[in-house]
Structures are given as structure tokens and as C-alpha cells.
Design a protein around this nucleic acid. Structure first.
Lengths: 346, 346
DNA sequence: AGCAATTTTGCAAGCGTTTGCAATAAAAAC
DNA sequence: GTTTTTATTGCAAACGCTTGCAAAATTGCT
């Protein structure tokens, strides 16, 4: 690193070390059949010249780019951030670089797939809630390594990392029931996503198993965003007979719920208990701190990255489906139902 | 996109269209001297074959990769997320891709610089609080396009996008003074960063201009992280004569402050007012919602990206320094000092 | 010392583009 | 109808590296 060099190539190093350029290449890519003394000489030359490999050329010639693509819907979401953090941590260990794509970029998601398969990345990690199936198909047909995160392949032919959504929701509802709640409002996620479906299913199952009848009004449609969480909560609060607890399908919408509750002059958890799903970092930041179902998002990212790398380095590895457990994180946003504010209101 | 092709190259397209491969290349890179009818024929062939350009090859040959590097300290921080979002939005428009590097990866930051200059990226955006100067120097010496975000070049020879830290802090303190506070605790940021310095300076200036004497105990050292915020707040609360308001150098530490205040059985803002800096998304999520100095983080990212692209496309553009205004966002975490809880305690 | 086996090295042929230069075709000017 | 000028196209040479193949050097055995 002593020189200001615009372009030291492998040839320069070869000359400096007095060997052929292919030998340099072999030293650099960790080939075994190189005499130790030669290797040393080359390494010294590399150091002296401040040589740095040109990735583009390397991947053009070698077919590997050392880059992994990450396709996400956007960055405005603690959820994605956590997953990305896990991925990044894992990639660091393996010295892969991370190429970030956000799908809001264009509507033609499929074009990304192609672009990535064309040399830019060696594999791709998909956190794309609104994944079109065709997209996955393209990837699979081209036999391009990829792993889905928190998203299922309808055909079950992809490697996937997700978590026990259904069970997590089941436990959350069970917890509320255990506190004595009987009228529990539920705000769904974006129902075209499997995770949203499963959370709803878990909730319903818990009610059913507890012999609590399901009231249709108590299930409100949301979309995993805060705003809808707010509005769905309003609808619940406006009910003739409002719930004593609200279970939002993710933390973000739970925040919206808390806001709505507050806007109605009520207190969490005193008047209404609120529970979320995900446990994004903000969950412990809000006040009262949110009780929620923890998905190990960073861990999911880490595992997905690991799976992908394995698949890249060993192409005929069979696909895998890893499902991580969720866990209930009890904080301060839930308590047993008090004398109803509704009663006071009367 | 009709074919399942593992490797349609420009040659295949050329054959299909009945032209030479260089003509195809020219059509694809938007060269002007191509007959319309030819262009059309080529485009059709591209479509028919599902051809996608190979970026690696393109950049090897053409020297441009269409990728911009983003170097950040980590992802665990709403602050970075906002900046990244702005950058991403801007890059989308220009069809650049984003390569993400986190510095926690290795301690040898400088090696990234080199790696990026070697073909992987056309330019780099740096949000690296702990920037070593040598790093910047390397980039500049190689004449590699880069822009610093919220970080100054001690030598003033880099393009920079930052915000009016000093003034923002000045206004925040002024606001607290205006509410009637006289004993204001201040928690610094990581003092080796310019922004931390400037915020402190702004605070002091406001006090001085208002004729309020500065008490050394009221200035506590922090590091921009929540934990230190908590601990610094504890130190302030333990003072013989505690402050009635606390100004934390960023939102994250303000959250720590709020937590500490609560741990002491006190209420924000009733017993103690808290004000932050940054206005990260979480600021409006906490309760009470945090009054803070807004830095237009996404806008900073956007502008930095724009500056960088301009520099890439026009290398001898002079460096620029853009400083964005901050603004006070008044929410609910501050109010006039009440009868002191201290008094009650006596 | 002689020969086979094994380790090291070098050469050359790509990898899929871009681009300068030269050739050809078309249009304009004389 | 020529000669210029301008618009189109093609060829070939990079870009910096990896890797198969073969030659050279070294080592181990007999």
C-alpha cells in the first residue's frame, strides 16, 4: 500500500516477483501446488505494489463474483433492518459482499432476477413479500442459487427460512386469554402473505381451543403497516362492544394501535392490552414497552445467508426449509382486563 | 424472456439480428449513429432471446460498473437506515446499484477503499463516523469519486453533505431556555466526531447568549448510543442539584435518558424535559413522543448520491460542500419546569 | 544412476463487453 | 455525374483475470 497506483495488475506483480502471471493468480486464489518460497515472493510483491484484485475481471474469467444480492421491498422498516443485519454478519465471515436491491425500484421485479443471474451476484436472498411466483420460477429454472426469507414458495421447491408464525400467534392469544381477556381484537397482516394467514390461523386456533367464540367484528384487516394498524384499531374501538385487548399481526401495526388507543384517551395497558409480533428493536423503545412475539429476525438472516453460501459452493445440495421458533416476549403492554372503560363510559 | 437461457451473449443477439456484435453493443449503450431500422431489429432480437447484459464484462471493458458503494458503520441504527433510504431512492432514478459495506467487517477500513476503487464500484458514499484520514487520502489520491455524509474532511478537500449541527443545537437549547429551564443537562456525542463537537458548541453558545452560566457537572460525556445516554442521565439525576431538562446529542441517547428518568420514578416531561437530535423514525414512536432537532437524513442521502453521480459522470467537477438546515420538531417530551420534584423530595 | 511419480510453473485460450479505427453506404453539394 | 460530407457498420484489440494442458523441476525408489 505504499504506492499510488492507478492500475497494478497481476502482470506487474508477476514481473516484480519474477514468476509467471498464472502463478500469481494461483497464489492469490489459494491454489495448493505452489512452492512456499514462490508464494512468499509473490505475496511480498503484492504488498510492495499495493496490488488489489479486480473483482470484475476475476468474475468474468472465473464465473464467481463474490457478491450476494439481497432483494428487499424497502428499507423503511425495522423488520428488514434486522434481517439485513444478520445477513451482513454472516457474509462478513465468508468475505462475500452484499449488493442491495429494493423492489420499489421498478415494477418489473423479474428483471432483477435476470440481472443478478447475469454475473452480478453469485446468489440471491429474497425478502420480497410481494413476490410473484414467476420470479422464483425464473431463478429456479436457471438453476441460480437463492433462498427465501420469511416467505414461502407455493410450490415448495425453494430453500426457505421462516419462523413458526402460527404457533407464535397461538401463544400470544393464549397469553391474552390467560390474563382473562375474552374479547380480543385481531388486526391481520397483508393477507396475501402466508405469514399473515398463519398468524390469523394461530389466533383463531387458540380461541377455538379455549372455547372462546369468534366474533367477526373483532377481526379487522390490516396490511402490516402502522397506518392501517391505527385505522383498524379505530374500527375496533368504535365497536358497540369493544375488545379489552388487541393483537396486531406485527409490531408496526401494534404501534399504530397504541397511538389510536391513546388518541381515544385510553391507556395501554390499563384500558386496553396490546400485543404485537416480530419484536423489532423499536418494540422495547415504545412506552409502555410492547409485549410481542419475537421472531429471531437477525438469526433468520444469518441462517439464510449460510444456506445460500452452501448452495453456491455446492450447487447440487438439496433445498432446505428451516423454520425457527418464536418466543413470547412479555413486557408492559398487556395486563388483565380491568373494570371496563366502557362501563365507565356508560 | 421467453427462453430459458443460461448465457445469451451479445454475439447471439448479433446473429439473430443479422448485424455485427459491435452494432448490438452500440444499440445497447444508446449510441446515436445507428439506423433506426437496425436498432429496432436488434431490440427485437434482444427481446426474443431474453438477453441481459453482463455487467462484469461491461465494466471490465468499459471501465464503469454501474455500482455505487456505501460504507457504513453498521445497520443497527435508525440513523443509517434513513440515510440509506435517501440514497437508494436517488440511485433508483439513475439505475445505479448499491453495494453495501459495513465497517465492522474488519478493522482495516482502508482495504475497502482500495477494493472499491478496483472496479467494483464507480464511486463511494461514506458514512463512517470513525473515519481515519488516511482512508480519505487514499481515495482522493486515486482520484476516485466519493462523498462524505455527515462527516467532515479535516483537510476540506472532499465533497461533503452535512447539516447545521451547531445551529440546531443552539435552537434546541434556546427552546428549553424559552420554556423556562435554567439548569439544562447536556449529554455529548462521541467527541471525536465533529458533529458531536458542534452540537456541544451550539448548546454552550445558546447558554452564553442567554446569560446562563455553564455548570460543568451538567455536561456529561456520551457516545451517541443509548446505553451511554442512560448512564449519563443517571449521573445527571444523581447530582446534588439535578437539571430540569436534558438535551441529548442524538435521539438514541435521548431514549436512554427517557428510560433512566422513568427508572428513577420520574415522568417525562412533567418532572424532566428531554430533547434529542436527529429525528429518526423512532422519535415519534416513543412515548411521550420525542421533541428533537430534525436532520433531514434521507435528504442528505439523496443529495450525497446526486453529488456522487455528478462527480462520476463529470470527473473534474469541483468538490462541493452542502450543508442542510435542521429544524426543531416540537412534540411532547418538553414542557416548562414544574415545581421541582427535587423540592418534593426534600 | 535411472526411471516413475509428483510437484511447480508457464503458455494460451478464453470470459462478454466496449471502443478506436477503417471501411462502406447514403445524402448533400458542386 | 462527381466529389464531399455525414451517417452506419464491422473488425480487432483490449479490459484483468482464471484455468486446462503440457513442459520443467523435484523427489522418491530401486
Amino acid at each position: 500500500m505504499s504506492e499510488i497506483n492507478t492500475s497494478v495488475t497481476i502482470l506487474d506483480v508477476a514481473r516484480e516477483a519474477g514468476v509467471s502471471y498464472s502463478t500469481v493468480s494461483r497464489v492469490l486464489s489459494g491454489y495448493n501446488y505452489v512452492k512456499d518460497s514462490t508464494r512468499e515472493r509473490v505475496l511480498e510483491a503484492v504488498e510492495r505494489l499495493g496490488y488489489v484484485v479486480n473483482q470484475q475481471a476475476r468474475s468474468l474469467a472465473g464465473g464467481k463474483s463474490g457478491v450476494i444480492g439481497l432483494l428487499v421491498p424497502g428499507l423503511d422498516n425495522g423488520y428488514i433492518g434486522e434481517i439485513a443485519r444478520g445477513i451482513d454478519e454472516e457474509l462478513t465471515k465468508s468475505s462475500y459482499d452484499l449488493l442491495l436491491y429494493t423492489t420499489h425500484r421498478t415494477s418489473t421485479e423479474a428483471s432483477y432476477a435476470l440481472k443478478m443471474t447475469k454475473g452480478l451476484a453469485d446468489g440471491v436472498l429474497l425478502v420480497v413479500p410481494l413476490l410473484t411466483t414467476g420470479y422464483i420460477e425464473t431463478l429456479r429454472e436457471q438453476n441460480f442459487p437463492y433462498v427465501l426469507i420469511d416467505q414461502v414458495d407455493p410450490n415448495n421447491r425453494s430453500s426457505v427460512v421462516d419462523s413458526l408464525n402460527r404457533q407464535g400467534a397461538y401463544e400470544a392469544t393464549q397469553y391474552l386469554l390467560g390474563l382473562g381477556h375474552r374479547r380480543i381484537g385481531f388486526i391481520t397482516g397483508l393477507m396475501k402473505l402466508r405469514s399473515a394467514e398463519e398468524r390469523l390461523a394461530g389466533h383463531m386456533a387458540a380461541l377455538r381451543d379455549a372455547g372462546v367464540s369468534v366474533e367477526e367484528d373483532l377481526i379487522q384487516t390490516g396490511d402490516f403497516w402502522r397506518r392501517e394498524g391505527y385505522e383498524a384499531a379505530e374500527r375496533l374501538l368504535n365497536l358497540h362492544n369493544p375488545p379489552t385487548a388487541i393483537f396486531a399481526s406485527n409490531d408496526l401495526s401494534a404501534f399504530g394501535v397504541m397511538e389510536a388507543v391513546r388518541a381515544y384517551g385510553l391507556q395501554v395497558p390499563h384500558d386496553i392490552s396490546v400485543i404485537g409480533f416480530d419484536d423489532i428493536p423499536q418494540a422495547s423503545l415504545v412506552y409502555p414497552r410492547l409485549t410481542t412475539v419475537r421472531q429471531p429476525l437477525d438469526e433468520m438472516g444469518r441462517i439464510a445467508a449460510r444456506l445460500l453460501i452452501e448452495q453456491i459452493e455446492n450447487p447440487d445440495r438439496p433445498i432446505r426449509h428451516v423454520t425457527l421458533p418464536t418466543s413470547l416476549v412479555i413486557r408492559e403492554s398487556c395486563q388483565s382486563p380491568q373494570q371496563s372503560w366502557l362501563d365507565l363510559r356508560r
